[in-house]
């Protein structure tokens, strides 16, 4: 459909228009990504070059050692393993439990509206306000300094339930009726028919969960008191101190910390777009 439309434009002798669209997109992309370009460039600069006026775009000498030195400054391998665990469990959890809850919300039951609103309500509560109460809850569960404390509170989220419900609603009701007549139970239907149909919606939910957890700072900082439980975002804090910010190291670390999420996005990109496409629109 897209190609068809474009071809018709081409036919309408409007190659200038197309040039213009590409150009504006290019400009947009450059502006949007300038901060990342700057991050990369700083991560390769010598300390004394960082504050040059006018700013240099390309480092004069490429100081690759910034990366190895930044890596040596903290226990990054532990942080990466922790962050992977802390990000993956909620990702899988939100896909799994989110799907279950979303499925329940597609079936009519008493109080479903109120309950759904309560789920949505969680998006209206600032997490900063619940930080201290949550610390007390985790302490009573003996979950401070454990992976449980860093993951279990996030194995389901209102956003995941919301997205998946929107998607499930777009699947025609007849499917389930037909399946039921064939003697297929609700869970069989969910796992064998509905979920395979919603692969991309699941990917979307998973990606957002992963991003959210990978980039979390404050929860991981407050709920752990041992270096061995720290995550990469908390690790980033070592480059800032009263004696100033160590810009080159910090930018080098920012680069390798962001890399896994970018790679993940590259992998799931197509399904992600499809996922949004199918869940986001139908009311």
């Amino acid at each position: 459909m897209l190609k068809l439309e474009n071809r018709s434009i081409l036919r309408k002798k409007n190659s200038l228009g197309i040039m213009f669209i590409y150009l504006s997109l290019l400009v947009l992309v450059v502006i949007i990504n300038y901060p990342f370009f700057w991050m990369l460039s700083t991560s390769l600069k010598a300390r004394s070059e960082v504050f040059k006026i006018p700013p240099t775009l390309i480092p004069r000498n490429w100081v690759w050692s910034n990366y190895s030195e930044a890596w040596a400054l903290a226990d990054w391998s532990t942080y990466f393993v922790n962050t992977a665990i802390v990000a993956v469990i909620p990702t899988v959890g939100q896909m799994f439990f989110g799907a279950l809850a979303a499925y329940a919300f597609t079936r009519p039951f008493k109080g479903s509206k109120v309950l759904f609103l309560m789920f949505l309500g969680t998006m209206m509560i600032p997490s900063q306000a619940t930080l201290v109460p949550n610390y007390v809850i985790l302490k009573n569960l003996k979950w401070i300094n454990t992976y449980a404390g860093l993951t279990v509170p996030f194995i389901s989220s209102a956003f995941a339930v919301f997205m998946l419900r929107q998607f499930f609603l777009s699947v025609p009701r007849d499917y389930e009726d037909a399946a039921t007549i064939d003697g297929c139970g609700p869970f069989h239907f969910l796992f064998r028919i509905l979920l395979p149909l919603s692969r991309s919606a699941l990917v979307t939910v998973g990606l957002f969960a992963f991003m959210d957890r990978w980039n979390d700072f404050i929860w991981a900082l407050i709920m752990t008191t041992k270096d061995s439980m720290r995550t990469v975002q908390v690790g980033m804090a070592v480059f800032q101190s009263e004696s100033g910010t160590e810009w080159t190291y910090m930018m080098a670390a920012a680069t390798f910390v962001s890399l896994p999420v970018i790679i993940l996005f590259l992998f799931v990109q197509r399904q992600f777009i499809e996922g949004v496409m199918m869940s986001g629109v139908k009311g």
Binding site: V136, I144, L221, I222, T225, A237, Q240
Partner: peptide
């Protein structure tokens, strides 16, 4: 030894730990 973050962040952690008695 454990790095608690900036002065502000360490204070936050200490407050939470006081509330929780740990």
């Amino acid at each position: 030894a454990m790095y608690g973050g900036s002065y502000e962040d360490t204070t936050k952690k200490l407050l939470a730990s006081v509330v929780a008695g740990e």
